[in-house]
Every structure is written in C-alpha cells, then in structure tokens.
Write a protein that binds this DNA or RNA. Structure first.
Lengths: 335, 335
DNA sequence: CTTGGCACTCGGGAACACTGAGTGCCAGGC
DNA sequence: GCCTGGCACTCAGTGTTCCCGAGTGCCAAG
C-alpha cells in the first residue's frame, strides 16, 4: 500500500523537518532530495501519507509534519543507527575511564550522554537486585550500635546504622561477619533472603537475636531500594525546543517513578525508542525516549537513555545511546 | 535622606510587585496600603526613590519596579524573616525523620525545600573536610586487592579499590585496620594527613609499602572530593517566571562549581541573601539566592538554599530556608 | 509640604490589508 | 495509469495604523 517512493517521501519529510524544524512543503522537498519527480507528484504522495496518518499539516496552507506514527515507521524501517565517529568514541572512552567510583561513573555518564546528544540524559544506577554481594561489613560504632555496609559487585555501597537489642562484644560481631561473608559472598541479591534464612538456623542460640536484628535490616536495605535511583542532566537542552510544556517535562524528570517507567523494561533489541504518545505519561507527549540497557557481559544491570522532542535525530541519538551503554558496561565489568 | 514614609513606599512597592508581578503605580499603591497620603505625594516620593536607584520604570508610562538595590534595602531593613506555621514545621519534621541514610536525608531535604518555597532548591552534601572519621574499613577482595571504606560522623561513606604492590595476608590487613582506626577514630578529616604521616613512622618496616599504598589512596579520597557534591530539585518551578533566560539558569545549575560559589561561604548571620547582579555568575542576574549553613551543633558542615527570581517573597523564603537548615542539622546530629 | 488638575507619553491590543508558501484539483501528455 | 504543469484557493504571519488607558511629571493653589 505504500510503494518505495512514498516511503522515500516520508523519509525525506522526517529528515527535513528534523533539520529545519519547519513544516516541509512539496516544492522544497522535490528540490532538496533528488526524487526525480515533480512537486505535483510529491503532493499526491503526501496526500496519501496524510490519509494514512503518517504526516499531518498544522494548518491548511502549511507544509507537512511527521506524526508519531510517521516517526515510528521511520525508526523501524527507514533509518539505520548511525555509529559514532572514531574521535567521539575515543572521547567517550577516555572520559569514562577517569571515574573513581560508582557515583563518579554514573555522574560522568549522564553528563557525557547529555553533551553528546544535546538532549536530556537519564541514567539509572545499577540495580541492586540484579547484582551480587561482594562483601558485607559490620562496623561496631558503640556498645549497642553497629553500622552495616553492603558492597555489591558493581561497586555500589549501601550502609545502615543498626541498633542492637543488647550489648554485644566485638568478637561475636566479628564471628557473625565471617559467617555472613562466607555464606553471602558472590550470592545474587535476589537470593539473599533465602540464604539468610538458612544461615539463621545454623547459628548458636545466643547469637540469634542479634543476628536477626542485623539481617532484618539487611533485607530491608534490599527491598527499600526498590525505588532505584535515577539521575539526569542536560535540562538546559530542553529550552531549545519546548517553548511550551516545558514545565510538564521538568516535573516528570523529578519523579523517579515516572522516569523508571520511561526507561522501560529490558528488551532484546539493543536500543528501544518510545515516540510521543507511545509513552505512558501524558505530560510527555511531544517527547521521545531513546533507551538502552547496560551491564557487564550479558546480564542487564540497569538502563540509560535520553529524552528529547519527538522531532529529534533518531539515527544519531540511537547511535550515541548504544555506544555509551556499551562503554559503561565495559567500565563496570572492568572495575 | 530617606524619611520613614519613603521607606514605607519602597516596602509597599516591593510587596505589591512581588505579589502581582506587575509594575506598581502610585494610585493603586496609595489605595491598597493606607499610607494616608494622596497618589500625587506618592509620586513625588517615587521620583526620589527612582533618582536614588531603588526603583525603576520599565518604560515611561508604566509603574515602578524595585531594582536590585531596592530589594537589598528591603531585605536588610524593611522586612523580617517570617517564621513557618506550626503545621509546616511539623510536616518538615516528620518528612525528614523518615530518612534512612545520608543520601536519603539530602534527597528529602532538597525536595522538601523546593516544594516549600516553590522554587529551585540547592543542597550541598556535608563537607568531607569539616567532618571527622567515624571508621576506616579495609576489605580484602582478592590477594592483591582490597577495598578501602571511609565512614564519617555525618554518615557519609566513601570507598575505593586499592591495588597492592604485593601479596598480603589477611591478618596483616586486620592489624593495619586496627592501627588505622585507633589513630584516626574521631580525627577531623583536615587533620588526617598529619596523623597518617605520624602513624607511618611507627609501623614495622615490612608493612610500610602496603600501608603507604593504602594511605595514599585514603589521602586521595580526601582531596579528590574537594569538588563537593551538590544536588538540586524543583526546576519545574522556574517555568513560572523566567520566560527568557531560563537556559542560562539551567546551565548554571548543572555546573557544580558555579553552584558552590552561589551558596557562598559560611557567614555569621543565619541566612544570607544574594540579589540579582550581586551574584558572581552573569547568567544569573535576574535571580536571587537565599542560603544558610547547616550542621550539627555550632560547626557548619555545608550549605543549602534556594534560587529564584529576584522578584521573590524574601521574608517567607528566608523563613523556610532557615527552618529547613535547622531541622537538617538536628537530623544529622541525631543519627 | 501636600494636593488636585492637566497635558503628555507610550506599551499593548484590535482592526485591517497584504504577502507568499503551500495546497487540491484538473486537464493534458507520456 | 501515472506524471506533470497550471490555476484558483486558503490562511498563518507580518506590518501598519489607530486608539485606549494607566501612569507620569509638572504646576499652581491650599
């Protein structure tokens, strides 16, 4: 129902509109992209594309603008992800390599991505639940207080202060620490609850109250952070587009829950795109999200992406997101 | 040179302009604030105030608007910090009390402040250099790798992976840990370098290379974080004012360095205000910063504040900032 | 020193016409 | 059957003009 030329016209409309930010007319289009046909013919094709809902005109005497459906077709069938230049890749690599800890990795990543795409970048911290325990530390603070520190294989550190039911000598704590680490080292966080339950059985009677208090805090830490932490950067880039509706976008960005849903679920393809009204939050129609998972090796630890106007350069943006996701994965795996 | 009535007029101009966002004219002013004089008299006073640079008119046939100098006089001499209502104070208290760790305290604080003032809130993490060591932990990861964890009295945790020059048995590490903690516990971070140097002298010859590697990373951690971490929230509130220049403001907010300078140095008075062109960054003329230090007890650990249009309700904003700063101080002291 | 009166200024909104990019449709040509 | 040039039509955006009214500065009188 859409022959090759009509698809070419759609592609041309998208590309021109993205680069000029103005409705594109048949004449300009026939000139700039050598389609080999006259404006009149292009007009006929456009009429069909409009009827099918791929493009629309803001008002009668204006050019055409892609609809969400048009962008979708463009992304799915008419474009290819554009890889970064060698220089850009080197820049990414050196910039990320300088990071000293997880916080730093995430901060650098989000800034890098914002700068690279000239859009708002969003990065989720590596999920606690999908990582494994690297170490558990118990630090006596006073006679009845200890600090519990949990370190994951991604370098993430969580700490909590625990008030103990009664006084405990340091060596009993040391013992518990040893036991905990023996059992939990390398254990997937998702399997910590059962492992802990097991462990509890095997402790001497005396230690159980103390151990119970501590492990319950430990389990708390795991579920508590179900609200994964998300950071963003590059909001200044929003002012270029979005003269109106900016407020909604900024509000959405500060809602962790909304952000989570935006980044979406893990997916098989490397980069996922949500266009305009496809995304769940009504304040964000008019924006698209390009996201990808990242992680060390094959398991996806978390996601990152950028948010921009539906009128964005998808091939380039997708290339940048994919590249950054890969490099972050490498960095995390290597540290 | 400015009699009482002229000051009253200035106050009235500021208050009216803040609440209506429109240049205020002599007539409206004489009516709304019962000054007991006629519009004509008010006009004369306004002429004087304008000559002195406290107010200005956007164009000839418009009312008057306060200048930065006018706001300054208002803040210094014509207004009083407005305390929060009891309900608001309770809300703050309960909201902050729910925090589980330092990250959480800071995140909650910045959101709370943004919501309370309907402005952009900025919060600096408790300074490393002004806190004291609560605990140093060395966690063996493999034969030649350990993780160094530094915990401060404010609950801040820093961790680094250290590659050792040669293989080291666990008990030597345990010993070093004990020594480190014995020396450093409670030590002000600013005094850590000298303390560490001392300590190095007293170690057995064999341990020095290892200890040297570890302590040098420890010292790194201290200076490295000279770029204090700062977070902000509430950017959506910017869209209400700032139809233009928003980009500059957003850019400034993402520059840690600029933010640092904005919050300013510790000061004796409880709340400091920077108005428009008084602040160092040119993109932020048109904005004011209301800031205060916070900390446990009398030593200021860090600063927090809000950023908004120069046209803001200073008494209320100052009240909110002061209150939040106090509560955060309490929370940190208590944990 | 205050006040009412008065002429003056000027931004902003309403009414209006004009321009030009772009469209839809149609008849003729390949 | 599809492409093309021609043509009338539409309408957003721009520029012009005009008018209104809020607000001012100044002055003379109380």
């Amino acid at each position: 129902m859409l022959d090759d030329r009509k698809l070419a016209v759609l592609r041309a409309v998208v590309e021109d509109y993205v680069s000029t930010n103005e409705p594109v007319g048949s004449k300009a289009l026939a000139e700039r992209h050598n389609l080999g046909v006259s404006p009149a013919t292009v007009r006929n094709d456009m009429a069909v594309l409009e009827e099918q809902g791929y493009i629309a005109q803001p008002h009668t005497s204006a050019g055409r603008v892609p609809t969400d459906k048009g962008y979708r077709l463009f992304v799915d069938r008419l474009s290819q992800i554009k890889p970064l230049s060698a220089a850009e890749r080197r820049a990414i690599e050196t910039f990320l390599a300088g990071a000293v800890d997880l916080d730093d990795v995430v901060t650098r990543t989000v800034r890098l991505l914002a700068q690279l795409t000239r859009q708002v970048a969003v990065v989720q911290y590596p999920s606690l639940t999908r990582s494994t325990v690297r170490h558990v530390e118990l630090v006596p603070l006073s006679e009845r207080r200890i600090m519990l520190v949990l370190i994951t294989n991604t370098g993430r550190v969580e700490q909590r202060v625990v008030d103990l039911p009664d006084m405990v000598e340091d060596d009993r704590i040391a013992h518990l620490r040893a036991v905990l680490n023996a059992c939990l080292d390398g254990c997937a966080l998702s399997r910590v609850p059962e492992t802990v339950a097991d462990l509890h059985e095997r402790l001497p009677e005396d230690d159980r109250p103390m151990a119970g208090t501590i492990t319950s805090v430990l389990l708390d830490t795991l579920v508590d952070r179900h609200d994964e932490k998300i950071v963003f950067a590059g909001t200044a880039n929003l002012t270029a587009d979005f003269t109106v509706g900016l407020r909604d976008v900024l509000e959405a960005l500060e809602e962790q829950v909304v952000l989570m849903r935006l980044l979406g679920e893990a997916s098989d393809s490397s980069v996922t795109v949500r266009i305009g009204s496809e995304n769940p939050y009504s304040g964000l129609h008019g924006t698209s999200i390009v996201a990808a998972g990242y992680g060390s090796g094959d398991n996806e630890l978390a996601r990152l992406g950028v948010l921009g106007p539906t009128r964005m350069d998808y091939p380039v943006t997708m290339g940048a997101v994919r590249a950054v996701a890969r490099y972050v994965g490498q960095i995390l795996a290597g540290s």
